[in-house]
Design a protein around this nucleic acid. Structure first.
Lengths: 340, 340
DNA sequence: CTGTTAGCGCTTTCAT
DNA sequence: ATGAAAGCGCTAACAG
């Protein structure tokens, strides 16, 4: 069932048959119908691989998560982002290919070898080899959250400004802060430390910016960043939030302000501390419905829209970018039963 | 940067260069190193398209959601399923391609034209043309939740038995049931009706089986299925659960049993009715953490594992299937503040 | 409006 | 252990 067979059956050349599918207008209506009928009778479908080889375009957008791929689906924020990417792919008639990375040395090769016309990356570390590989590839690419690189369009919100603003908001009535942070490096080592012992620069740009923002607000509130407890999680899950809160428990004032880098982590902390620290307050990120429902104050983060923008940039790099990613602080209202 | 260039630079034939990558053992170590060095210097990466054309294998698994593709990422259960699929793809060194469907007549062609060696489908309706198309294609395929078709391996739990069991459990102490159901057809029309007015057969097999299970339990409890209110949602989201509950409100006894087909829907109903029907009880499906935390009783549904199985079946159709998908009834514990 | 030519990058014979 | 020939399915460029 190749195009040649269809052409033979329709009594035309393969070229005409090809045009009947790809440029219907270029072929006389009668001929076109004959070709389509022949194709139907033979059960012919154009072959994407042959088409891609000749045309040089795969009509696929490659999506790279430099993590164990399954995590992408476990993280609700990543899922929102992917939903936005998928929307654009559907609108533009493009396919969506996930490029699995395994964390071994071949990841960069795997990405570059992929059958894709452009790439969308989920935020990663400065030293991720995939980043350098994609930056050096001529195909267009966009990344959510950074790091920023020449050759890769960067779509992100002002993490520093938002972190500083939400922490200042949370600290306005004199609470004592603790921080629950995303991982500090690609080893994802879980630990509890203090501000003074953090590295001066974290390779994940989102994490780095948020830490700097929290620090600025804490110091501007007249508190000591150096002695602020910081729990570092391995992954952005509720479970890790629970564990982080448990490990921080000894250092928690009754009126603690738990500053978490995501609603998932804040929700985990809330779950862990509900009983023992009923007066604690929580800051998160992404303003999830669950977080809002439990009274967690959060930074809004339109990840679906960022997914849309990344996909658009990776498909049509020349289109205008669309300006800043907006954010605001959403103060969730605690459920009635808890406001006693 | 084609393989020919690498071969020329390494002073070997293209064949030898090819083998140096695909069958390293078939080439003398010295030659192999020379080829690899030449490739490194030239920045060569094998081209997936050329490879696929000649070998006839794309090393990609195609995933089809016969919905607006973005919904796949909005539904936490679908995300779990995808996480399982992705895990297997990473383990097997396969790529993962989403095949977007648009709901138009070309979906079947799009799926069959895709560059994929096998297909994984998310549960769909009996009359979905994609189903027939994939069944008629020689490539292996697996579907979660059915419908079952020759040529497509079906991975599903016993929805009828589980629905009957959980409904019987919920009805054991005399509550009055209402049902919140997934859509009844591909139009996804939202509505409120009663058991008597439901079609005798729903084209979505999962929905059909669960409705039949609920009906059996309700009738076995001596209640009237015909007069049981049934709200039908358009999509499996919390928001739709809220709306369904609001529309049912007038028909709700104080001690109502809200039988929802998912935890998402049950959570929405719980949110809508918390204030006005504090004594109501809720049944869901999938035993999500959020549902368990709010005391929703639910059927466990290992969707991640089903994703793994589907991927394995679509990649290695000869491997053993692995037996039944287990389920049990998980009774969430309501938070302390509500158990008064 | 339709056909001819040529070749995209790679790998499966089969020979050396 | 290596190479030569051939072609996977399709379409850009150019004729006719």
């Amino acid at each position: 069932m190749t195009l040649k067979d269809v052409a033979a059956r329709a009594g035309v050349s393969p070229m005409t048959a090809s045009y009947a599918f790809t440029r219907p207008a270029r072929v006389a209506a009668a001929t076109r119908d004959r070709v389509h009928r022949a194709a139907g009778e033979l059960g012919y479908r154009p072959d994407a691989v042959g088409r891609a080889l000749k045309s040089g375009r795969t009509r696929q957008l490659g999506v790279v998560f430099s993590e164990h791929l399954a995590y992408a689906f476990d993280d609700p924020q990543a899922a929102q982002f992917l939903a936005g990417v998928a929307e654009v792919c559907v609108e533009e008639g493009q396919g969506l290919t996930f490029i699995p990375t395994r964390g071994d040395g071949d990841d960069a090769d795997r990405v570059l070898s992929a059958a894709a016309d452009g790439f969308v990356l989920w935020t990663t570390a400065d030293d991720d080899p995939v980043l350098a590989a994609v930056a050096g590839d001529p195909r267009p690419a966009a990344i959510q959250g950074g790091p920023s690189r020449k050759g890769i369009a960067c779509v992100t919100q002002d993490d520093y400004g938002a972190a500083r603003a939400i922490a200042a908001h949370g600290l306005r009535d004199g609470r004592t802060p603790v921080v629950i942070s995303f991982p500090l490096d690609r080893n994802r080592e879980q630990m509890v430390t203090i501000g003074a012992d953090l590295p001066s620069r974290v390779p994940f740009p989102v994490t780095d910016a948020r830490l700097r923002g929290y620090r600025a607000a804490i110091e501007e509130a007249g508190l000591s960043w150096a002695s602020t407890p910081v729990a570092v999680v391995a992954r952005n899950t509720r479970r890790d939030g629970v564990e982080a809160a448990r490990e921080l428990a000894a250092r928690l004032a009754p009126d603690a302000l738990v500053i978490a880098m995501s609603d998932e982590l804040a929700l985990g902390a809330h779950q862990a501390l509900r009983e023992t620290r009923p007066e604690a307050a929580y800051l998160g990120w992404d303003a999830s419905p669950a977080g809002q429902g439990l009274g967690i104050t959060s930074v809004t983060n339109p990840l679906r829209d960022q997914g849309r923008r990344c996909a658009q940039l990776a498909l049509n790099p020349d289109r205008p970018t669309g300006g800043e990613i907006p954010w605001s602080i959403a103060s969730g209202s605690a459920p009635a039963v808890e406001s006693r």
